[in-house]
Design a protein around this nucleic acid. Structure first.
Lengths: 126, 126
DNA sequence: TATTCATATGTATGTATATTCATTTATGAG
DNA sequence: CTCATAAATGAATATACATACATATGAATA
């Protein structure tokens, strides 16, 4: 059992680049933002949700449409939609018994697109 | 127990929007891409990794620098770096015993920036 | 060779997340 | 009001994941 705390086990201070470390710490976004950002990306980190967002970037759709697009159960789709709602990535509109979903804003598509670009590019030089 | 398969339990076909559903299915990226994309975003879905990427977007840093920036154990940092390497988001350069990390390409910063934009904007109208 | 230091990897455990089934709420029709 | 249907929610389980701890590799050096 190690007694020393993990944080103090630094490599010899000779090889640390103090100024760069300080600059990096200074430039760091506030931890609030980092947390929100990580949660945002977490929502994007599931193929099912990506499919929903992709579908909604084509057109507004109701829950049972999405059920059909994803070939998933109503409950599963609804749970994913709840998460997307919580993350404010989608908007809802009710018409009678039917609830229609659409993308909340243009950032959603932007994030999808820049991510896809990266993936497609990396595929080339794999 | 219900006998019907989940997929067939659709809302009355009257309320389904066949053409939109088909369009959404047609426009869907290949499942390969969706999977890679979800894995890409998963890498971004941790505050620690975001901090590493943020730090590296300032300047190239070695592992023990990052240890200091994050106030994390060497093991934790090394694990996160392994994940970032696997996702090809960072590049390494060895100089003697020291391994220097830097961002792999400009997409990484782009994704960070558009995500941060979204987060900052949402904060305004919360 | 033996030792030390920087980094990497393996394993085990708690936590988080997705899915399913069952139930509940909301809306519209008869 | 009662019944049927769309969507949402809750509880339970099974899987995935992050982390901590221990150990391993590999280079420099004494």
């Amino acid at each position: 059992m190690a007694v020393n705390t993990p944080n103090e086990t630094l490599c010899g201070s000779a090889s640390i680049h103090k100024n760069k470390v300080l600059a990096a710490i200074k430039a760091e976004p506030p931890s609030e933002s980092l947390l929100e950002l990580s949660e945002l990306f977490k929502v994007f980190s599931d193929p099912g949700r990506l499919r929903i967002l992709s579908a909604l970037s084509e057109s507004e759709l109701c829950v049972c449409d999405l059920q059909e697009v994803l070939s998933a159960s109503q409950s599963a789709v609804s749970h994913q939609l709840a998460m997307l709602r919580a993350a404010r990535l989608v908007r809802t509109r009710r018409d009678g018994k039917t609830v229609y979903y659409s993308l909340a804003d243009s950032h959603v598509r932007a994030i999808l697109l820049v991510g896809l670009e990266h993936v497609e590019e990396k595929r080339g030089l794999a």
